[in-house]
Amino acid sequence: MLTETEKKVISALQGNIPVCERPYLELAQGLGMSEEEFLKTAKGLDERAIIRRFGATLKHQKSGYTANAMVAWSVDEARVQEVGPTMAGFDEVSHCYRRNPTETWPYNLYTMIHAFDEPACHAIAEKISKAVGVEAYILLFSRKELKKTSMRYFD
């Protein structure tokens, strides 16, 4: 359970923190609390891993990663718990999840792959495929960004 103070701090940290000498003082003042209380609360959220990652989010296109592929894999369920962590171990893989397959969609493991171009994404997928011995997979390249925002919680 989150306290009201924690929810306020989350709502401040989920935005864009000010780039100045004392950003937390500025955020704390906006919430009517002390910098000390704000920092203590933020640290508590960080220690409990309620903050998944705290830092700069880059615009990938501008930092040189121009191709990203979502690779959907069809993996024998008995092997998922072994294959998932192996795929996650590749540096080129940023996300790796298991999802339930559906009647019209047979895939159950998903990896996001980032590389400099689309052939490089194919090469990485092939490398992973060989490493885990899974041959049923497809690459879905993002063509157009229709929306990209961060979720606003407790606003």
Binding site: A49, I51, F54, T57, L58
Partner: peptide
């Protein structure tokens, strides 16, 4: 840099 801030796990909230 698109933003500097926290990313939260929805399930933990």
């Amino acid at each position: 840099i698109r933003r500097i801030g926290g990313n939260f796990s929805p399930d933990k909230l």
